[in-house]
Amino acid sequence: MDIATLLTFFLLCISSATAHNDKEQAAQPDGYLSTRTCEGTQDTSSSDTCSIEKSHGDNIYLSLWEKSLDQAYQTLNLDFIQHMEAGDLPVDRYVNFTIQDIYYLVKVTDMLKNMSTSVKKPEDLRQFFQGRYSSYKRFQDHLLSIFYRKGVSDIKPTPAMRKYVSDYETIMRTKEPIYFAVSLLPCSRLWVWLANKVDMAPSNAYYAWKKDNMGGRPEKHYETLLNKYLTLNNTEAYHIFRTQMQNEHDFFATS
């Protein structure tokens, strides 16, 4: 890829923010990922107190996150995130990151299509997967059109991305559908948190990433559902959540 093409691609990447965030925005016309909330109010501070306090109740949605904060901080401290925050991340690294994210989006959308038709009961879980698929599909189509792509068959996934997608596929094939919902949550939860943590001025070339990813409310789609079907002592849910948090970490670490 020559320099002119690379710069053009970079500008497209920045203008479209990120695949992870926008698929949530497409999912909720009223607002995919506004700031992290506590008691229904926005929390843009650096404190994680509200989540930690609430997770002492019977809220596995919050407990999953609390017990994985170590992984969140490890991701925040990665070279890729730190250089984004400083505004000196090389363009080619962000472009490659975005290409891999497009691959992720298309593969996860395909799996959500499968879940949206295969899950018949219970009704709220069926509606969850239909809603997630509709959201991801709209954004996938939008993103592919922006980059003039028909698919991702020519994108070679990195080892980290290949493992991430493979773990999704294994969960889809071998676990109850509620666990696939759990597997989707780390992406949504982590990106909001990272965007609120990084200190970027509007003049930073990557400020659009921060701005767009700050705006999300994953609890709108996940909290009631997970708390209804999972208990705090569900070790499988914690294992899957931490596995996917590690996959997110490794995606950033190898970008």
Rank of each mutant, 00 (worst) to 15 (best):
T75F: 00
A205D: 04
E53N: 08
N233I: 01
E66Y: 02
G57H: 10
F129W: 13
P159S: 12
K211F: 08
T18D: 09
D88T: 09
A4S: 14
S118N: 07
Y238M: 07
T174F: 09
A19V: 05
R126A: 14
N213L: 05
R138N: 11
D92I: 15
T44S: 13
D124W: 03
A181S: 09
L89I: 07
L232K: 09
P122Y: 05
V108N: 01
S183A: 15
A17N: 15
V91S: 00
F128S: 10
F97W: 14
H83T: 06
Y179F: 09
I146E: 07
A160N: 14
G215V: 04
V192M: 03
Q71M: 06
D2C: 09
V119P: 07
N77T: 04
S188C: 08
L11T: 15
G87K: 09
V192H: 02
M200P: 00
G131K: 13
Q244M: 15
K137D: 09
N21D: 12
Q25F: 11
T98I: 05
Q25R: 15
T231Q: 05
Y222L: 07
N96E: 06
K137E: 12
Q28E: 11
P186W: 01
T174W: 03
Q246K: 08
T254D: 08
T117N: 14
K137C: 02
I155F: 10
S55A: 15
S166W: 06
Q127H: 13
T117G: 08
M1H: 06
E66G: 00
S153A: 10
E24K: 04
V165N: 05
R36Q: 10
L225H: 02
L144K: 07
N233K: 12
D141T: 10
S183F: 02
A201D: 07
Q244V: 04
K220R: 13
I155K: 06
S116R: 02
D199K: 08
M1F: 14
V95F: 03
L230V: 02
Q246R: 11
M84D: 00
G216W: 01
R132V: 13
C38N: 02
L6Y: 05
D212W: 05
I178N: 01
A201M: 03
V192R: 00
D167H: 09
S134M: 06
L78A: 07
T254N: 11
L69Q: 01
T235P: 03
M245P: 02
D212C: 11
E123V: 08
D88Q: 11
L7D: 13
K137P: 00
N247S: 05
A27T: 14
P186A: 08
V91D: 03
S51G: 11
T254E: 07
V182A: 02
G87A: 06
F129M: 11
T254R: 03
Y222C: 04
Q244I: 05
S145M: 13
N114V: 15
L76M: 06
